[in-house]
Design a binder for these strands. Structure first.
Lengths: 103, 103
DNA sequence: CGATGACTTGCGCATTTGCGCAACTACCGA
DNA sequence: TCGGTAGTTGCGCAAATGCGCAAGTCATCG
């Protein structure tokens, strides 16, 4: 078997693992709050987000690391501050779909 | 303040909590596999899902309980077997959006 | 160079989560 | 009524997670 078609389950399984990782990154209210803050397409510093969400800066940094390693947000450094943004428009659709199901 | 408009943050926060709960329910590869199995709109028994996903029946039952308490799937009993289905079409959109971001 | 501000990282801890296994309940068929 | 099949629930355990706090890195300014 497996002459033309590549392996059948492994890709689907890897895809599921990635999807699960993304979902896990969205599974925290504070991280969702971060995404709402970034939903306007703008950039925010760690300190700003920390203030808006209401948690300590180190904690926010960890949350942002989770979101970033899931490919949900991206960051760039400007001087001494680091600015975070939504990585891709598809993320906004995902958050919207999430809110519709959770409604 | 707060004359006409109801409280501002509490609803948003409750909504976030529900969204986070839904995302957490989706944050496991096996549960995503369940949803893929149900994506055709059909119904499946616990035993079938357990076999397709590759885990023990009690474990599958727990996973289904998680999905159900998040409002992602619904169940009905037919004789001695219990059939699970996707609770709402919006769930399919959510899973699709998740896969697009995770791609 | 210090010194200060902006983030990140490491660590210990309490909570949660997925799993396997055993026990229990619910529904048939004989 | 008595098995037997189908699901659910309870329990203990290992692993992951969020948090607070301390310490480290990186860039700016005097």
């Amino acid at each position: 078997m497996n002459g033309v078609m590549a392996i059948a389950t492994p890709p689907a399984e890897a895809q599921r693992d990635r999807s699960a990782a993304v979902a896990r990154a969205l599974s925290d209210p504070k991280r969702l709050c971060v995404l709402e803050n970034l939903a306007d397409g703008g950039e925010r510093s760690v300190g700003d987000l920390s203030r808006n969400v209401g948690c300590q800066v180190p904690n926010m940094s960890q949350h942002l690391a989770v979101l970033r390693s899931a490919g949900i947000v991206a960051s760039r450094r400007q001087g001494s501050t680091v600015l975070y943004r939504i990585a891709d428009p598809s993320v906004l659709e995902l958050v919207g779909a999430l809110q519709r199901v959770a409604r």
